[in-house]
């Protein structure tokens, strides 16, 4: 663990995961959050700087010194926003923050990426290791900025050897968070693809918080897949939640979803279909061995976490 009294800066602190992380850390460290959104119910000892993470004031936070680590959670992923917005926020924004870390001597950076950067594909091996190529952009151009973010962080790892950089690629995070998998599982009637039932991996949001805390330990650096308590077929996950399903023939699913998307009836872009069709699972053994991370929640608890 990093020494006390040094500040920990969290970008995207007002998001669900950011708030959970802030609550986990604020008793042990001074926590500074950068997020332009409100942070309802913020503990009093957390310093929330309500600015855009691309702004000069965000950079000033890092310049102020006495910082133990930057935890970068401030990723924009709103499929309705333009590609330019995403690029400016996720790529340029992250680049500026990382540059500032190198300039002002922040000793540790933890960047939250996602196992989705590998991409669900028919010919994926069952478990992808951290060395696997990031193929998600091939069929899902809209998430290229997330892959680029991951790569910026990896190249920063090599370029700025003085900074301990940790990149975490968690599998589908379930819980109160508002991400695609949790939203999907919260649908009243869950559409599935007829004849497809891939194995999926899920991890509890609080386990991800623990993984980030593990990554703060001095000396740890590198890329880590973060896995939960195991893997189950999608159908088992839905059965555990008692969700009625609506199997759709896969050749019809694409045009249907595309029409719904254009009509703004859904928040799921068409390429997300591949996640309920093919496997995109990762090998989390490196995180277990080197970070000492071990998910505490059972599969059942993790799945039920989306119910809130």
């Amino acid at each position: 663990m990093v020494g006390p009294r040094h500040k920990i800066v969290i970008t995207g602190i007002a998001g669900r995961l950011g708030r959970l992380l802030a609550r986990r850390l604020h008793r042990d460290y001074p926590v500074v959050g950068i997020d332009r959104r409100d942070f309802p119910g913020k503990p009093r000892d957390i310093d929330h700087i309500q600015v855009d993470l691309r702004s000069k004031r965000a950079r000033d936070v890092l310049r102020a010194g006495d910082i133990a680590a930057l935890i970068h959670l401030g990723v924009m992923h709103d499929p309705r926003r333009s590609g330019a917005d995403h690029h400016s926020w996720n790529v340029q924004g992250a680049q500026r923050l990382l540059d500032a870390c190198a300039t002002y001597g922040v000793p540790k950076v933890v960047a939250l990426s996602s196992a989705n950067v590998y991409g669900p594909r028919a010919d994926n091996p069952q478990f992808l290791t951290e060395d696997a190529p990031l193929m998600a952009g091939q069929d899902f151009p809209a998430i290229r900025d997330l892959i680029e973010l991951d790569m910026i962080a990896s190249s920063f790892f090599w370029k700025s050897a003085a900074v301990e950089t940790v990149i975490l690629r968690p599998v589908h995070i379930l819980g109160t968070v508002h991400n695609a998998p949790s939203n999907y599982l919260r649908l009243k009637r869950v559409p599935t693809l007829l004849g497809f039932d891939p194995m999926v991996q899920v991890v509890h949001e609080l386990d991800v918080v623990e993984a980030i805390v593990c990554a703060l330990r001095p000396g740890t650096r590198g890329i880590y897949n973060i896995t939960g308590p195991g893997q189950v077929p999608l159908s088992t996950l839905l059965a555990e939640l008692g969700r009625p399903t609506l199997p759709v023939f896969h050749l019809l699913a694409k045009p249907l979803l595309s029409a719904l998307w254009r009509g703004r009836f859904t928040s799921f872009p068409v390429p997300e279909l591949d996640h309920i069709r093919y496997v995109c699972m990762v090998d989390g053994s490196r995180a277990t061995k080197e970070l000492g991370f071990c998910p505490q929640r059972s599969l059942k608890e993790t799945i039920r976490a989306v119910l809130g």
């Binding site: 028919a122 010919d123 994926n124 091996p125 069952q126 478990f127 290791t129 693809l193 007829l194 004849g195 497809f196 039932d197 891939p198 194995m199 077929p233 896969h250 069709r277 093919y278 496997v279």
Partner: peptide, 24 residues
């Protein structure tokens, strides 16, 4: 490697212990 993109076979073969042919 084609099997995972064929409906039903994609998951039935997996339930029966068959695996996609990759060296990993």
């Amino acid at each position: 490697k084609l099997i995972p993109s064929i409906p039903f076979l994609s998951y039935l073969l997996a339930r029966w212990g068959q695996i996609t042919g990759t060296p990993e």
